Computed example of a mutant assay.
Amino acid sequence: MFRSFVYMKMDCREVNALLSSIFFLLCNTGSVFATDRSSSFHRRENVNLTQLQPFVLSTTTTVNEIVCLAHCLDSVLCVTAGYNGNDKSCRIYSVSPSPNDSGDTVTTQIKFYRRKATCQEFGYTAIVNTSECYKIHPTALTKTGASKECQQEGGHLIRITSSHMLESLIVDIDYLGLLRTYLYIDGYRRQGETIWRFSDETIMTFLHWNIGEPNGMNHTNPEDALILGNGFFHDAPQSFEIRFICQRSIF
């Protein structure tokens, strides 16, 4: 019986990625990839490419889209993978793609896949009874630096919206020995106002203040940022360099 073989030139990195991609099952009808790591990639059409650009984690050249998806699985931050069949470029992103309703043109040569995974695969912990995850960062940053770090990971500072959510979070924080550690959470107030808002401008309705808080509205260095400490909310200057909690969704 006659058999033909196709040879491809690959470096060691691509060989390793290709071997890991053996665990993928390509379903021709559903365009869904499944793996032995309980992850999957769902094909996304009509993607807003402009929205994804600021969140590129890396760009590489791969032999095919299977290897590209393997690269995404190897990154704890990767949410979306885009493979260009023309130049064989593979870009991985830290956010989920939004529908392309801005009129931007997306070439048909780029195939986008959104990763489906658990919080733990991204180094996060699940928020009880939600599709959201959180992570306490060990690095101390200012409020601006903390917000940027969370955005780079595809999320934002954690938005505590209920007593149930706070109580669950406090249990985890106490278990880690961080109950008395000050942590940035999402929330700010505009100069001269007493209303507190999340960074998306939603007005906050749950505020679990410590006794005597908030107390920094009229300080020389206004305390217009929100921090969590010992289970209560405190106002604080945005210039403080402290640890923080990020929140992101599982997709």
Rank of each mutant, 00 (worst) to 15 (best):
F55H: 08
S96N: 13
G85E: 06
C78S: 10
P99C: 03
V76Q: 12
D87M: 07
T62S: 04
H71K: 14
L73D: 00
E45L: 13
L25I: 13
S58A: 14
H42G: 13
P97T: 04
N46Q: 15
E65L: 03
Q51Y: 08
N86S: 06
I66K: 08
V56M: 08
Q51F: 09
C78V: 04
N28A: 14
N28S: 13
V32H: 05
R91P: 00
Q51A: 15
D36G: 11
I92S: 02
F55A: 02
S89E: 13
V32F: 06
E45R: 12
S38P: 04
S96V: 15
S58C: 11
I92E: 00
S31A: 11
H71A: 10
H71N: 15
V76N: 10
Y83M: 01
G85T: 04
N48E: 15
P97L: 00
V95A: 12
Y83I: 01
T61G: 07
S31P: 05
V95F: 06
N28P: 09
L69D: 02
C72T: 00
L52Q: 00
V67T: 09
D101A: 04
N84A: 10
C27F: 07
V63W: 00
T62H: 04
S75E: 07
C78L: 04
D87F: 05
I92Q: 01
N46V: 11
G85L: 03
I92G: 01
E65V: 03
Y93P: 00
E45C: 10
Y93K: 02
L25E: 14
N100V: 11
L49C: 10
F24T: 04
D101L: 11
R44W: 06
L77Q: 11
P54W: 03
L49E: 05
S96P: 05
I22Y: 09
L26D: 14
S102A: 14
T80I: 07
T29D: 15
V95Y: 02
S96A: 14
L77S: 14
P97E: 01
S102D: 15
P97N: 03
R37S: 09
L57G: 03
N28C: 10
C90H: 01
L73F: 01
L52Y: 05
F24N: 05
N86D: 15
P97G: 08
T80E: 02
R44N: 10
N28T: 14
S75W: 04
C68T: 05
T29R: 12
V67W: 00
S58M: 12
G85M: 04
A34Q: 12
S58I: 07
C27H: 11
C78M: 12
